[in-house]
Amino acid sequence: MGNINPSLLHIGSTVGAVFMALMVIFIRLKASARPVTIRKIWIPPLGMSTGFAMFVVPEVRFPLWWAALAFLVGWFIFAYPLIRSTKFEHKDGHVYAQRSKSFAFILLGLLLVRTLLHEVINRYVSVPQSGGLFFILAFGMIVHWRWFMYKRYTAMVPPQAPLPQPRT
């Protein structure tokens, strides 16, 4: 893959992951001051799905069963702490996400585990492939967490009455 030093890619991906974790913590703290909506629940995984374009590059590709395994690890293991720390509350006729004191620690813990796993996995696959695997792992985690949020939100919000139809 070009003339880029793999160790620089590794350092760059780690710094990028730390930056993203800090941004997520900051955004989540601000978001808890505004009501939750279905749109706010689903926009992050939809925006993240554009990352699948990385698999157009041949150096990033790997067997499909690796992708399935990474997705399932994200879905069943990495999403669990986020699901456990996400709670909603009714306030002023709206649904809000409760601030969780443990959320920042959970994200930093997940980042630490991800970094350690990255070290192990980089021994067996290339840096671009491990980036793709961890993207799929993160996508599985986010989709499961947001699916949980959506189910919890819809259970708390009564269905909207249909709009009256105009008389003809």
Rank of each mutant, 00 (worst) to 15 (best):
L137M: 05
I106H: 09
S126K: 05
H118K: 12
G131W: 00
R84F: 01
I83G: 03
S126T: 13
G109R: 04
I121S: 07
W66N: 02
G109F: 03
R61L: 10
L82F: 05
W65Q: 06
F103L: 14
K87F: 09
I43H: 08
A70Q: 04
R61M: 04
G132F: 08
F76V: 00
T115M: 08
K101H: 10
G132A: 09
V120Q: 15
A138R: 14
F55W: 10
I136A: 07
K91V: 00
V95D: 07
R61P: 03
F139N: 01
P44V: 07
I83T: 02
S100P: 04
F105S: 06
L69Y: 03
S126M: 11
P128A: 13
A79E: 08
T50L: 10
Y124H: 15
V127F: 15
F78P: 09
R39S: 07
G131T: 14
I83E: 01
M54G: 11
L64M: 14
S130E: 13
I121K: 03
E59V: 12
I41M: 08
L117A: 14
I136P: 15
D92W: 06
E89Y: 09
L117I: 00
G51R: 13
W66L: 05
L64H: 11
H118L: 15
V57P: 13
S102A: 07
G109Q: 05
Q129I: 04
R99Q: 15
